[in-house]
């Protein structure tokens, strides 16, 4: 399947990536190439096959409902690009 610029732009918006016009064509071609590579998958009859999202047919272990985490804000915010008064800062969002 051929990936058009329009599709690339849409997916770029969903994934919050930005491409120049030149890159758009390049990424579209690359996506097309990958999708062609995976195309042969469509030959397989998978009717009735349960999708496998995990190699283990194991089930989820559960965690006791106990507070185990303390205040590590100083540690975590040391690696943050921009904080003030304990808050992470981003450019003003207008809702």
């Amino acid at each position: 399947m051929k990936i058009t610029d329009k599709v690339v732009k849409n997916i770029a918006e969903l994934t919050q990536l930005r491409f120049t016009e030149d890159e758009l064509a390049e990424i579209g071609a690359s996506m097309t190439e990958t999708l062609e590579l995976v195309e042969q998958m469509q030959q397989v009859d998978t009717a009735g096959v349960e999708p496998m999202s995990n190699p283990l047919d194991a089930t989820q272990p559960l965690r006791p409902d106990v507070v185990t985490e303390g205040d590590n804000r100083a540690i975590y915010q040391r690696i943050a690009p921009e904080t003030q008064d304990g808050l992470y800062l981003v450019p003003k969002v207008i809702e």
Partner: peptide, 20 residues
């Protein structure tokens, strides 16, 4: 007592990000 996927407290009104 704790969050759905971590051991942080969910108590209301804590100083920002100390329960993250």
């Amino acid at each position: 007592q704790s969050k759905i996927f971590s051991g942080s407290s969910i108590a209301f009104g804590a100083a920002p990000n100390i329960q993250a």
